[in-house]
Design a protein around this nucleic acid. Structure first.
Lengths: 212, 212
DNA sequence: TGTTGTGAATCTCTTCACAGCT
DNA sequence: AGCTGTGAAGAGATTCACAACA
């Protein structure tokens, strides 16, 4: 079993490897990947071990081959379709980020309740009426929902998504959502992230601060 | 010493308490707060213990008093000023979220390099030229920087922020940034978050799935 | 020499379990 | 009876440290 944290780091390694690939880099050592990823060398080795990938003591890891191994570990071979609910600033930001980034993970549509948005194209994908969420999500075989609506309707939107067959949710609304346990939820809490940084801005509280 | 994770949860508790306060709730038990926060009762008690707050076995915790204790633990009494660098969709989303939410944490300005934005008001705060970042950040006594610029200039922007006196950075660019150790950095990696959820969408990989 | 792969040790965080209180 | 506060146990994740190898 591969831990949740390792999954996150593999996603990061893959992105770093893509960059290396673009500059025709052939091989890389664990300590190099670690420093790019902001981690440690043993951790990189453990992570790669966990997906059964082996390097060589002489040359480290082969960039292209490793990237391919991570792809086949992380990606669903038949692809994953996602939808963004709430086509505001944040929703559009997410859609822009994912504009044709990964072939196996596509944001296929967005939903909103604003008549000016419904029926139009937002970030090159159709924007549908949130009232039609259930039927449309089911019809398009969407399995991942990104919630970027205000907190007060987030749970309701989430329930509709799950009802339509979604089994993974990325929630940006500043509210904890609750779902059946077969649904995987990731909360990205921007308010908390800000407040955490604000706390550690006070130098006397920074856990990484050098010894006094 | 209070752990980083506890800080994050305290921020969440505080927000939940504010909601309870709005409905005139007087007291709350650890298990209730836990279920709202998506955690466990002992964890809530430990977190509160770590800031030296005590409840009573009879009535649990006093909502208003606890909220006040968390405030005084988390907030810098003299306030914290923040700036968003990159006034795109994501930058504006963050600014909207923080429109007058917390009195002690204010996003005071944004920076961009788009001549159409520079000099205008974005989300009710002035947008300055990114070229003037150093002087403006120093002048406004901004200590927290939010990076929402493209990956290729994120490190450069971060260096300028640090150079101007910022000691906390919230980075949304899909790239690990490196800073001196007196600077606290939090990476919010939207790509990784999406890819993590995509991985667990496959029911056979969901760590919370019920026993087969 | 410098690397990988990995058992063992360590560290960190969470949960248990129960005394003490009301 | 049902809660809080907390020492002790447990679980998980990270790092150490070293054998094996090129």
């Amino acid at each position: 079993m591969v831990s949740e944290k390792t999954i996150g780091r593999l996603s990061l390694y893959r992105r770093l490897l893509a960059g290396l690939l673009a500059e025709n880099r052939q091989n890389i050592y664990s300590h190099e990947l670690a420093s790019m990823a902001g981690g440690t060398a043993p951790q990189v080795r453990r992570d790669l071990m966990s997906i059964g990938y082996s390097g060589s003591p002489a040359k480290g890891y082969e960039v292209a081959d490793l990237a391919e191994s991570i792809n086949s570990f992380l990606d669903n071979p038949s692809g994953t379709r996602a939808a963004v609910v709430g086509a505001g600033n944040l929703g559009r930001a997410i859609m822009s980020y994912f504009e044709s980034r990964r072939p196996k993970l596509r944001i296929a549509a967005s939903f909103d309740n604003d008549p000016n948005k419904i029926g139009s194209e937002i970030c090159n994908r159709p924007c549908y009426d949130i009232a039609d969420l259930k039927t449309t999500v089911a019809r398009m075989d969407i399995r991942l929902g990104v919630i970027t609506v205000p907190a007060d309707i987030a749970q309701e939107v989430g329930d509709k998504l799950v009802d339509a067959g979604v089994t993974g949710i990325l929630n940006f609304a500043p509210k904890r959502l609750h779902f059946p346990e077969n649904v995987y939820v990731e909360h990205v809490d921007l308010t908390t992230s800000m407040e955490k940084v604000a706390f550690f801005v006070r130098s006397d509280t920074n856990p990484n601060a050098p010894e006094a």
